[in-house]
Amino acid sequence: MTAAAAAVDVRALTRSYRPRRGGPESEVTALRGVDLTVEQGEVRGLLGPNGAGKTTLCKILCTVLTPTGGTAHVLGHDVAADPRSVKPLVGIVFGGDRGLYGRLGARQNLQLWGALYGLYGAPCAAASANCSTGSASPTAPTNASTGSPAA
């Protein structure tokens, strides 16, 4: 990694999926030959219709998915070859009404993300111990902004 590395550097990035049902002929390509550079300090947005690959690209950059072709680097670190170096540099929360995060309490969200970053057991419990869920149950889902029980 060099000090002048781009924040994000993507070259010929491809990601294909094989649906749960169907054979190889039903393979879906979510990303095909994507090139993107975002310099440090720049802010970019991803716009496109449903199915355009926006979430897939973000998941690859955050090391949640691996690309099926091409390369992706975050601050000079290859997301496929060196995900452990990338994870501390990025953070993302995928929204949506059907998402998992809203169904979990604040402490549960901290424990989930701790586990995703390799923090388990006592260290994870200690890190999330100061989190108040706003209810008598430490695992009851709550509204993160109000502390009241989730609907």
Rank of each mutant, 00 (worst) to 15 (best):
T2H: 00
A6T: 00
A6K: 03
A7F: 09
A7Y: 05
A7V: 09
V8C: 04
D9Y: 01
V10I: 08
A12C: 06
A12Q: 09
L13K: 06
T14W: 07
T14Y: 07
R15Q: 14
S16D: 14
S16F: 13
Y17I: 01
P19Q: 09
G22L: 00
E27I: 13
V28C: 00
V28A: 01
T29S: 09
T29F: 05
A30H: 12
L31G: 05
L31C: 07
R32N: 15
G33H: 08
G33P: 02
G33W: 04
D35P: 13
T37N: 07
T37Q: 13
T37S: 15
E39C: 10
E39A: 15
Q40H: 09
Q40V: 12
G41C: 12
G41I: 08
E42H: 04
E42R: 01
E42P: 01
R44F: 15
G45F: 10
L47W: 03
P49S: 12
N50Y: 02
G53P: 01
K54V: 04
K54R: 03
T56R: 03
L57W: 03
L61C: 04
L61N: 05
C62F: 11
T66L: 13
T66K: 14
P67E: 10
P67A: 15
G70F: 12
G70Q: 10
T71K: 13
H73M: 02
V74M: 00
L75G: 04
G76I: 01
G76F: 02
G76T: 01
H77D: 05
D78F: 02
V79W: 01
A80P: 00
A81G: 08
D82R: 14
D82I: 07
D82G: 12
D82M: 08
S85F: 00
V86R: 12
V86P: 11
K87V: 15
K87D: 05
P88D: 03
V90G: 02
G91L: 04
F94D: 05
F94I: 07
G95K: 00
D97P: 10
R98H: 15
L100K: 04
G102W: 06
G102Q: 04
R103E: 15
L104Y: 06
L104C: 09
R107L: 11
Q108P: 03
Q108D: 06
Q108H: 01
L110N: 01
L112W: 00
L112G: 03
W113A: 13
G114Y: 00
Y117E: 12
Y117R: 15
G118H: 13
G118N: 11
G118M: 11
A122S: 13
P123M: 12
C124Y: 02
A125V: 10
A126P: 06
A126H: 13
A127K: 03
N130H: 12
N130K: 11
N130P: 06
N130D: 10
C131D: 03
S132W: 15
T133F: 00
T133H: 08
T133N: 13
S135F: 11
A136M: 10
A136F: 08
S137H: 12
P138W: 09
P138Y: 07
P138F: 08
P138M: 08
P138L: 06
P138S: 09
T139V: 05
T139E: 07
A140C: 05
T142L: 10
T142A: 15
A144Q: 08
G147E: 03
G147R: 08
P149M: 07
A150G: 04
A150D: 06
A151I: 09
